[in-house]
Structure formats: structure tokens, C-alpha cells
């Protein structure tokens, strides 16, 4: 009896040690047949002796034999899994690729940098409750100049070299022009809407101008206008401060200085401290520490009167900036003429 028990222990020892040497599924099957095969398997063979044992020992040996059967089965399954894993591993290894090869690219186009800048700026003002509006590029002298306090022969007209359209009306006057700024939309908006007014107007403008690194004959502007009861210069400051921090970073400082635009009073220009040198002075800010961003001011009472608003009841502010200039500052572009030459080597970088 003892010998059967001992034989079971020795069988387990041999079987498990054999199992470790097996590397293939076929070998594993052979191993199973060798130990567990119904006909000649070592374990069934051993158990043939079982009926010969005294009745009282049979139970004990039977339990040990069942336990061994389970152990062999678990061992078989574990080893099978290990072998499968290593075969998969080998197969995957063969499929190793050079991950540094370029990917199969889905080409993505890019929005024009001006579009990108206009969207970025617009979204800041939309979040402040502004509407985005659009207006005609072919304008009349009235909207582009006269309604904005720039009558004929006004010296301020020299600030806007105008492209006039070759069209004479019945009085022999040439009344149509390509708008020189987006400010005519101040008038059109106030004519079409009731306060409260909050609009921004991104759009094309034109000047009769020789082009150079900072001047284009066609460019964009973004105009802003807010008119309501109780709007003050402090509100203008706060609005543009919020804008500048959102666009150029939370640490930016702003500065207002006196400037002249006939349709605002007071008129100012707004600068931010240079984001390139933090105000110390560098090439970006021409060593001044400050970068001019836009013109602004409180809507002139005469302009309000002209559109039928009582300047003792309503006040407002207006501002205007050039998205190309802002784009140039942000990306370090040195020549505005890159924008509308449409060289893909330039456009695809943004």
C-alpha cells in the first residue's frame, strides 16, 4: 500500500518536471498521453492496482489519485497557455515594423492665418456678448467719411488714402469708394439697431497705398462698437483689458495714450507691454517696451446725433484693430505682404 502512495508522489514529481521541458503543443499532447492516456497512461496503470488494496486504504489512495489527476490537468492547461503565448509572441515579433517610417497622412488643410486670427478675436468678444456683423465693402462717401465727422476737404481725410470707384452720379459726383476702414458699420449698425448695441465687424478694407512690410492696399480690420445708457471710458478700458489678457496672456499690462480719430472723443491708442521682452525693450516693440494694438475712443456726440441718438442719454465706445498686425506679432511674421500672396509654403505653416 505504502508503495502505491509513494509511487503516486514519485509520478507527480516526474510528470511536473517533464512538463517544464515541453515546448510545443504536440509534445504537450504526448506528455498527456504518457501520464494520463486511458490505455497506457502511467496514472491509470498505477490505479489498476487499486482494487488489490485493502478496503480501508482504497479511499485514501483514491483521494490522492484524484488530486494528482487535477494537478496534472491544471499543469497541462497552464503549460498550453504558456506555449500559445510564446508562439503568438514569436508571430508578432515577425511583424515588427519600423515605427519611424512616416505615417499614411490624411492631409489636413489650414484656414488662412487671417481667418484664424479673426476667429480667435471674434470668439473673445462673442463671449463678452457681442454680435458679429458684416457690411458692404463698396461704401458711400457718407458712411465712410461724412457720417464719421470727416466732411469733404477735412484734413483727416489724408489719414485714409481712398480708392474711388469710377462711377459718377447724376450730380457728377463720384460717391462710391472701397471702404478705408470698417467704421462705416458703426453708423449702419446704429441706424439698424436699437441700444443696447454690442457688435464687432471683421471685414476687408482698402487703401490707395504703396505696399511695404507693414502696409497693404487690401487688409482686414475688426471694428467694435458698444452703445447703451451709462457706457463710460472705464468700460472701454475694462473691455480692452479683458481682450488683451485673453489674446496675449493674463500677465499683460495695457496702456492708453491720446490719439485722434474724428469719430471718437476722447480718442486713444491702446498698447500692451511687449510680450516678447516683458517691457524691457526689444526688436518686436522697437525698444519701447510697448506694442500698439488698436485705436479706440468714446463715440463722438455728433456721430450719435447723426443717427438719431441723444448723446445726453446714450454713450458708447468704439475700437478698431488689424488682425494681420496681431497675427504678425503673435507669429513673428516680418512682412504683411506674405498674407495675400498666397504662397502655400507660408499658408501651410499656420
Amino acid at each position: 500500500m505504502t508503495s502505491i502512495k509513494e509511487q503516486l508522489i514519485s509520478l507527480e514529481k516526474h510528470a511536473m518536471s517533464d512538463l517544464k521541458q515541453i515546448e510545443t503543443e504536440q509534445g504537450l499532447d504526448e506528455w498527456r498521453i504518457n501520464y494520463q492516456g486511458r490505455r497506457n497512461g502511467q496514472l491509470p496503470k498505477l490505479l489498476e492496482e487499486l482494487p488489490k488494496l485493502p478496503i480501508e486504504d482504497r479511499r485514501e489512495v483514491g483521494i490522492a489519485a484524484n488530486k494528482l489527476r487535477d494537478t496534472l490537468e491544471i499543469g497541462y492547461n497552464e503549460r498550453l497557455q504558456e506555449i500559445k503565448n510564446s508562439e503568438l509572441q514569436e508571430k508578432l515579433l515577425e511583424e515588427t515594423i519600423d515605427v519611424s517610417l512616416p505615417g499614411r497622412k490624411q492631409t489636413l488643410g489650414k484656414l488662412h492665418p487671417t481667418t484664424q486670427t479673426i476667429r480667435e478675436i471674434s470668439s473673445i468678444f462673442v463671449n463678452l456678448g457681442y454680435q458679429i456683423v458684416d457690411g458692404p465693402e463698396v461704401e458711400s462717401d457718407y458712411y465712410n467719411f461724412e457720417a464719421l465727422n470727416i466732411p469733404p476737404d477735412h484734413p483727416a481725410r489724408d489719414q485714409w488714402d481712398t480708392l474711388w470707384l469710377d462711377y459718377n452720379n447724376e450730380e457728377g459726383i463720384r460717391p462710391l469708394l472701397l471702404r478705408t476702414h470698417t467704421s462705416p458699420m458703426q453708423i449702419r449698425t446704429m441706424e439698424n439697431q436699437e441700444p443696447p448695441i454690442r457688435v464687432i465687424v471683421p471685414g476687408r478694407c482698402y487703401r490707395h497705398e504703396a505696399t511695404d512690410t507693414t502696409h497693404e492696399s487690401m487688409f482686414f480690420q475688426i471694428e467694435g462698437l458698444a452703445v447703451d445708457k451709462g457706457i463710460t471710458f472705464a468700460d472701454l478700458k475694462g473691455t480692452l483689458y479683458t481682450f488683451a489678457r485673453k489674446l496675449f496672456g493674463a500677465e499683460r499690462k495695457i496702456r492708453f495714450r491720446c490719439d485722434f480719430f474724428p469719430f471718437v472723443e476722447p480718442g486713444v491708442d491702446m498698447s500692451i507691454d511687449c510680450f516678447s521682452c516683458d517691457g524691457i525693450g526689444c526688436r518686436v516693440c522697437s525698444n519701447t517696451g510697448w506694442i500698439e494694438i488698436m485705436g479706440a475712443g468714446m463715440v463722438h456726440p455728433d456721430v450719435l446725433k447723426r443717427v438719431g441718438y441723444d448723446p445726453d442719454v446714450y454713450t458708447g465706445f468704439a475700437f478698431g484693430m488689424g488682425p494681420e498686425r496681431i497675427s504678425m506679432l503673435k507669429h513673428g511674421i516680418d512682412d504683411i505682404r506674405h498674407f495675400y500672396t498666397n504662397d502655400l509654403r507660408f499658408l501651410e505653416q499656420f
Binding site: 463678452l128 439697431q193 463710460t232 468700460d235
Partner: peptide, 11 residues
């Protein structure tokens, strides 16, 4: 001059 934001209704 202080910095404030317009306080009225929005359009």
C-alpha cells in the same frame, strides 16, 4: 481711470 465692464443688458 478704473477698468470696468459695461453693466447693462446685452443685445
Amino acid at each position: 481711470i478704473p477698468s470696468t465692464l459695461p453693466s447693462g443688458n446685452l443685445p
